[in-house]
Design a protein around this nucleic acid. Structure first.
Lengths: 194, 194
DNA sequence: GTCTATACATCGATAGAC
DNA sequence: GTCTATCGATGTATAGAC
């Protein structure tokens, strides 16, 4: 199939707009991204953005998908240890590092701070992909009970949120990640083998 | 000292406005409370609200203080068991119930969803009061290490957030509260006595 | 696809009469 | 304290020319 060069350039343009939108989000917070400011950032007028996005929520949706693709890429590039427990720790460390390094991205991907925004099915599928990888690593480490999975996910999220809310850039909460993983994994094994 | 009846009625009025504001917040989300809608709710015109609040953030501040006073009242009314561990569980259960029963209140008190809003020193003091009660109960249960306290607080918050985000009204995540408390308290004891 | 122009809505806040 | 009137800013979205 011949590559449609027009469509290709269009995709590049869309990508650059999304990139600029993330820049704005990092500067002023995800809630305060405006189409006027975004257009200025990419050297256009605000109405011209509607040639690429049908609505502001469509822009948020593209940002959501982009952020989740970054997450999947990060998780895919991991060279995990053979030991399942060590692999689980490394995986959670990588996830936490990803979440903590960009508060704006964390807000759009994992918190619900934009009233009315719901990711499209296509964008959500990318998020599900990332989650399924987490499930696989947990299963390999012997955490198979759905309740145990819920607990571990919530614990890790709790540490990340506390870190971002109270001490962005620090490690006061995230330093306990490995310990919490051990704690829950050991307990899960005891309960499962009982 | 003679009671100033004028000031008293004014305080009542302020309280009723704050109550109406919480009603709006529960209906449409804390971020979407507007002064126009609030004025309509209390049978006034929007500019009249400025006789009671200097700004919209001042209204949020009053709501923040009100919510935290509710929390302190709830925690104070608890009849905790003598056993410190059981008391800790009951305390966390009560806190989680409080958080989960009103998502809008949870958003203003414990998440950061209003760009630019920071509670005043006076309002924040009420929140600190609530937190100090939690610290006392944890200490009594032998959780004294600051890192252990951080972990327990983050864990409980993680379960609450997951519950509210994914299944408001349910118990899929909060059902694990007691287990997580035991898990962390036992581990804290082992580490402290080592 | 990009522009100008503008519609349209919402919102917070102020001025000034009563 | 409450009102009317209005300001001024912001923001999304559309119409229509080029």
């Amino acid at each position: 199939m011949v590559v449609d060069k027009v469509a290709q350039r269009r995709e590049l343009k869309i990508a650059s707009i999304v990139e600029a939108a993330w820049g704005l989000a990092r500067e002023r917070g995800i809630q305060l991204v405006s189409l006027h400011a975004l257009a200025k950032e990419v050297g256009m007028r605000q109405p011209s953005l509607y040639a690429y996005f049908d609505s502001k929520n469509a822009l948020y949706d593209a940002m959501f998908a982009h952020g989740n693709r970054e997450l999947v890429a990060r998780l895919s590039s991991l060279d995990l240890p053979d030991d399942p427990r060590a692999a689980l720790k490394a995986f959670m460390q990588a996830f936490a590092a990803f979440a903590v390094e960009d508060p704006a991205r964390n807000s759009l991907l994992f918190r619900r701070v934009i009233p009315g925004f719901e990711p499209s099915a296509e964008s959500y599928a990318v998020a599900v992909d990332a989650l399924s990888r987490a499930g696989a690593v947990m299963n390999a480490a012997g955490i198979t009970d759905p309740g145990d999975v819920d607990c571990l996910v919530a614990m890790v999220a709790g540490l990340i949120e506390a870190q971002l809310s109270n001490e962005p850039g620090g490690t006061r909460w995230t330093q306990h990640l490995d310990r919490m993983v051990d704690l829950l994994a050991d307990d899960a094994h005891e309960r499962t083998s009982r």
